[in-house]
């Protein structure tokens, strides 16, 4: 992006920018979702082993990817906020958390739906699902810590530090769960196993991932706008915005 980030790192100039951009990302998310779902549900071929049930992966896999990626982005913003003391980064980290948790939850839920026809059980302790579950706990910890601290500055800094601790631990946890899973050879299925992935399947999955990204950006921008208004409610520019928008 060729934007001058330093100019937009001040809440007062970020607020109108976010307001202009959010609807576009929302529209892009809707269009991409429709395209992705069409590709996934109607164009992609039926899997010869798993039948039609496999089509849930067009939601499951992108959601799982997003859940992990959002955590890293969140930790990145948290680190930025801690090091450079920029309030906007802390707002971003805070706004990303609920969406990350949502995608983690979706990926667990769809994983269970997929698991029932595949393994005959709603839940199996396979490495991927277990890691997702732990990731959900990490998100919940971040959100709860933030909610428990009243002072906004302490809340931002403490949860930022927690996000960094979590980000360092995610690879360790992921590795240890993999290790644990291979030792206790349970039922495990990998989506690339059994059938080579058709090109349309991959395209549909990538389109869905992009759609989720656009959705995330739209929601995060909107959430950051609310956050900015709330925190800066005593400042002059917010009063101006309020008088302009109520007129």
């Amino acid at each position: 992006m060729a934007l001058n980030w330093f100019k937009y790192s001040s809440p007062a100039s970020f607020y109108p920018l976010a307001g202009r951009l959010a609807p576009w990302f929302g529209v892009a998310a809707a269009l991409l979702t429709l395209t992705g779902l069409y590709l996934g549900f109607f164009v992609a071929p039926t899997d010869y082993k798993q039948g039609e049930a496999y089509r849930i992966i067009f939601i499951h896999v992108p959601a799982a990817w997003m859940s992990m990626f959002i955590y890293l982005v969140m930790a990145f913003y948290a680190g930025l906020g801690l090091v450079f003391n920029t309030r906007l980064s802390a707002f971003m980290a805070r706004a990303l958390a609920p969406t990350g948790a949502l995608f983690t939850f979706i990926s667990l839920w769809t994983g269970a739906l997929w698991g029932k026809p595949m393994w005959g059980a709603w839940w199996v302790w396979d490495a991927r699902l277990t890691s997702e579950l732990i990731l959900l706990f990490l998100y919940l910890g971040f959100i709860s810590l933030q909610a428990a601290i009243e002072d906004p500055r302490r809340a931002a800094r403490a949860s930022g530090l927690l996000a960094l601790i979590g980000a360092v631990n995610v690879p360790i946890i992921y590795f240890s769960v993999q290790w644990w899973n291979t030792l206790h050879q349970g039922a495990s299925i990998s989506m690339s196993q059994g059938s080579a992935m058709a090109a349309t399947m991959l395209t549909a999955m990538l389109v869905m991932t992009l759609a989720f990204w656009m959705y995330t950006i739209a929601v995060v921008l909107t959430r950051v706008r609310c956050e900015i208004l709330e925190r800066e409610r005593h400042s002059e520019w917010v009063a101006e915005v309020a008088s302009r928008e109520t007129r």
Partner: peptide, 10 residues
């Protein structure tokens, strides 16, 4: 416990 237990898993 919410913060620490996930980190204890490894």
């Amino acid at each position: 416990s919410l913060l620490v237990l996930p980190l204890y898993i490894p």
